[in-house]
Structures are given as C-alpha cells and as structure tokens.
Design a protein around this nucleic acid. Structure first.
Lengths: 340, 340
DNA sequence: TTGTAGGCGTTATCAC
DNA sequence: GTGATAACGCCTACAA
C-alpha cells in the first residue's frame, strides 16, 4: 500500500524513454513540447503514480511552496477565519499554510520574522492586523524577496500588497442607520488604543454624527479593549447615566454583547430600552438574544483574496482588487428609541 | 541589511578550513569531533551568520522540519488552543507548524491525507479529534513512516501515539460535586452523536449518579450539538418542565451558557434556582455572569505534549506520559438547591 | 522540440 | 577525528 520508495523524475524519464528535463517540462506545463511526448509522459506519470517532491523543488527554486500567516492576534475567531480564507484560496494548488505567531511587544519581532523568512523561505506571507500595520516588517519582506499581502481596515500599501475592508465607511453607515431610526443620543464603546481598526471605526462614528448634524457628546464615549469584560464595564457605566443613551455602537461584537448583558442586568429591555450595534459579525452575534445587528467584516473573503494575490501574482485583475466592503447586517437589536 | 546571498555550508567549510562534513557534524552536534575543531567552526558560523537551509536538509533527510495539525473541527477556540499548544512545544526548535484541514464527511479523506503526507513529508502530525478517532488514518501515517500523535478524550493508541484527557472521570467528579451540594434532579445536555468525547462525558455523568445511588432519569436528558443554540433549546425545554431539575450538566461550555441564558429568560435566577456546570473552560466561561463552574479541558497542555512527543521521540519519559487530567474549576454557577 | 551538464545546500558512505 | 565523493530530486543554461 505505502509507496515505500516513491518514484522520482528519473523513473518517469527512464520508463517514458525521455530525459529528466522533458519530464520536468511536462510537469511545469512548458509550451514547447510535442503533444505526443507530453501524452506519453503523462501516461507514465499516471501509471506509476509519480508525485514531484516539493522539497527538491523548493531547493532548486530557492522557494518553498508554503504560504505563511504571520500574526499577533489574540482573537481565536478572527484567526480561524483568516486561516479558513487562506486555505480556501490555496485549495487546489500545491501550496500549504504555515502559521507563524509573533510577539507584538517583543523588541526582537523584526529579527524573529527575518529569521523565519530566511530559514523557511515561504513563497509568500499574509500579514494579519495588527502586525500588518508595521511598515518595517513589510519592508523586511520586500528586502528578503518574499511576497507579502497586508490585511487591514485601511489601505496599508500598494494594491497588490493590500487587502482591506472599509471600516470607516461601514461604521458610518451603521451609525447613520441608527440615526435614521430616530436615535440622537448614541454612545460608542471604543477599541484598544494604538491600533488602526478602532481608530477607523471611531472616525466612522464621528462622520455619521457630523453628516447628520449631531455633535459628539464626549460623555457617551467609553474606552474598551475588544473584550467581553470591557463591554460589560462600558455598558454598565452607560446605562447608569442619568441621561443614558438610547443606542450604543460597540467597536466589536464581543463588547456589544457585553454591553447587552450589562444592560439587561440593570433591568433594561433590549432593544426596546436600548438599541445596540456591533462590528465583526462573529457567530455569536446571531446566537445571542436578541440577535445582534452588526457590521459584517469580510475576513474570510479578505484572507482568500490575500492568498490568491500571493500565489497568482500575474493575475492583474486580482492584484488590483484590494477593497472588500463591510456591510451592515440587520438583525433584531435595533428599534426606534422609546418615547421618554 | 538583507543577507542577499546567504552563506552556505561551503562558505563555512572554506573559511574554517575544514570539510563540509565536519561543518555538518558541528551543526548536528555529532559527538565525534575534537573540541578545537568544533569551536573554530562555531566561531566561523557565528561570524558569517550562517543558517542551515531547511529545504536542503529536508531533501537530504527525506523529511521536512514541519509538524502538521490535521483537523476537522469547527470550533475556533479549540483549534486555536491546539495551535498555541503545538507552537509552545515547538518553540526553540527548528520546527514549524502547518495546518491541514480535512473534510470528515468526504469519502476521499484518506486519499487527501495520504497525498498531503506524501507530498509535504511532515516530520510528524498531530491528529485532532474527531479525525483522530479514525484508526485508518493512524495506520496510514504509520505506513507512510510519518510520526503521529492522536489527541482525544480517551486513550486511542499506544502511549507514544496518544495524548488524552480523562473526560469520563472528570465529568464524574463534576457531577459528584453537584450531588454533594445536595442536587438530586440533575439534567444533562449531551453533545453530538457519533463522537467519542460526548459519549465519554455522558458515561461519566451516569457513573456519578450510579455511585451516589441515584438513577438516570431519561426525562432529564437532552440532546445537544455543542452549539450555543442547542444549549438554549435544551435549557429552555428543561426549565419549562413541571418538575424541573435543580442542576444541569452541559457537555460543553457553549451549551452551558446557552442553557444559562434560556433559564434567565424564563425568569430563573442562576445559580439560586438552577445550578449549571459546563465543560471546556473556554474564556467565555469566566466572562459570563455568574461565572461558570466548569471542567478545565487541558487542550493547550495536551497539544504541547503532542508536539514534544513528535519532535523528541527519544524522550522515553515524555512518550510514556499520555494522560493530562481534566480538573473541575469551581466558579459561581453552583450552589445547593433551594428548598421548594 | 529535446537532451546534457551542472547546481541548489545538505547529509550519508566509506575510506583515511 | 576528518574528508572526498556521491546521493537527495528537481531546475536552469546551454547545446544539439
């Protein structure tokens, strides 16, 4: 059963009575080959079950048939979604996915990544946020001749090196939706400082207010750290206000659900007493009750696109496409504000 | 900055005025080497920043310095925990982690995995549940000369090929804990049919009842599918019973939290009116209110151990250790039943 | 259109 | 202990 000694290119060449190089040409679909020879070689390949050895190719080509996901992200769902997307993009190809976690806070992060790239020589890397925002690392990839694509909430690089959502616009749309429903006192639970995505989401929030002629009430801004607990804390402090908001936009679903639970614990009805909108569209958002109106963040699509950019670098059209819009998903956590 | 043309073993040999093979011996820590030669070579290696090329080694050794996680598991948190554990085990080594998802329901799953193993030639693979329960796949690894470790809730193979928790015992302990608190009417929300872990957990549940002299009330058994929603449904149907249980054991945390929410929606207080115990100890379990008493499933440790078994096959002690016990984590979702 | 020679960077064999 | 020499399996350059 087990192909103990696997056939090599030499076996194919010998049996098909051609040279190694001819077999190599067949494998690599070289155009300069007689149809007859190609057919004969392909027949032999099928007969003896020859499979090219990726290690040998990697050595000769000085490049591994591997795409690496470099990340420093604590969120399990995000990470798995990205992996799924990359794997979808890689499906049917000879490429495999390698996972390389790094420590954002380590001073050696650049050396660590350099070492990884030099040793493993991946064909390309997908940089996930927030590490994707580090220009030095992108430059490092470039210097080492490693293809890269950066994922983010804004365009971080040239189109061929970028896959991005439009968080700002999407949040603006979501908050405008709240305003259309009649909400005026809208709170925001922010994400962690120092990262781009929360900044963009906050910016979109303000944009929506401004274009509706509302002004930002700093009393309705709460810090958050993308965790459930921070959502609970922020939500609690908001609902305890004398003049509490009628709606909350949370910069991610986990915090939105935290806020939802805090509000309910304080005896409020969701959405009657308080409307809530999240961001991400995690599985949880459709599982909670009431189901959460949220912005769908197309992570899987983004990751798939990133993978395709890496392995099909000549696909001009794919390389030009860098924006995958986030869209609002209406569920049941938003209604017009109750008259009070 | 970039080491454009990396130094090779030849460069080291030339500068150190030894043969390639001697350098190779230094790299591989061969014992038959004069101390003097070793030092000189190591000095040169450090001086010119030589890094062995993994692709060339892979070709010569016919084996890649890669550990693959083969999985068919929908649960993001589980998957990420396993990856984290494997990466911890691999830290400091030259190994990297590759992710290989497979489709449990595909008839080609064996061929798919065989193809992957033959092409990629990973040094070893970690088989995650439920695919780890497939004996045919384990045999396949063996046939192809690929080291493997199977993760599971029971011992699935010889010690060196197994890393397992003891779900049955752990659940028995957890349910006994409920009984000690005074609970007699204890419900169970089961996991999906056809998998080992839910079976084991159910068995542990029954064991606890029997050893306390209680008998299983089939009316208190609810099916579940490890999803939040199934927990909500099961929880709701349980709390609506005329003679409802005073405690629920759910086969995983997601369902436990679902049941918790269903109960609260029906106006019950947790834990005063209903105690709940889960299984897994996911991050969420300490985030909810009240925090969930649950069984800690040591996935990260299991995965780390699996990785170590693969890359240090001569470590007899490590290879003998295959059981990593699950332990009960007492939080605040369990109190004695209220008198009624 | 096809073949030959040589290289990719490492390890294994077997002398010395 | 150490070193030529030959694998490992594929690819590129150049020749035919």
């Amino acid at each position: 059963m087990a192909s103990d000694s696997k056939p090599t290119i030499n076996d194919v060449a010998r049996i098909a009575e051609v040279s190694k190089k001819t077999v190599s040409r067949v494998i690599n679909k070289s155009p300069l080959l007689s149809e007859k020879t190609r057919e004969r070689v392909e027949q032999v390949i099928a007969d003896i079950g020859y499979v090219p050895n990726p290690q040998a190719r990697a050595l000769a080509l000085r490049r591994n048939f591997v795409i690496a996901a470099i990340h420093d992200n604590p969120n399990a769902q995000f990470l798995v979604n990205v992996q799924q997307g990359i794997l979808e993009g890689l499906a049917g190809s000879d490429f495999n996915l390698m996972v390389k976690p790094v420590d954002r806070n380590s001073p050696n992060i650049t050396d660590d990544i350099r070492d990884f790239l030099v040793r493993q020589r991946p064909y390309g890397v997908v940089l996930l946020p927030p590490v994707s925002e580090n220009d030095e690392i992108a430059r490092l990839c470039d210097d080492l001749g490693c293809r890269y694509v950066r994922m983010g909430s804004v365009r971080l690089d040239e189109a061929e090196h970028t896959v991005s959502s439009n968080d700002r616009e999407a949040v603006c749309e979501a908050v405008s939706y709240l305003i259309e429903k009649g909400h005026q006192r809208i709170a925001i639970i922010e994400g962690p400082k120092g990262f781009t995505s929360p900044q963009e989401r906050r910016a979109g929030f303000e944009e929506a207010l401004h274009s509706a002629g509302l002004k930002l009430d700093e009393a309705l801004v709460r810090p958050g750290s993308y965790t459930f607990e921070s959502g609970v804390a922020a939500g609690q402090s908001l609902v305890e206000m004398a003049d509490r908001p009628t709606a909350i936009f949370a910069c991610n679903d986990e915090m939105a659900i935290g806020a939802m639970i805090a509000a309910r614990r304080s005896g409020l009805l969701i959405p009657e007493d308080l409307s809530i909108v999240g961001f991400d569209d995690t599985p949880l958002s459709s599982h909670v009750w009431p189901s959460l109106t949220t912005v769908h963040w197309p992570i899987v699509d983004m990751a798939r696109t990133a993978a395709l950019k890496l392995i099909a670098p000549d696909d001009v059209e794919a390389n030009a496409r860098w924006l995958l819009p986030s869209v609002l998903i209406e569920r049941s956590s938003v209604v017009p504000p109750a008259a009070r």
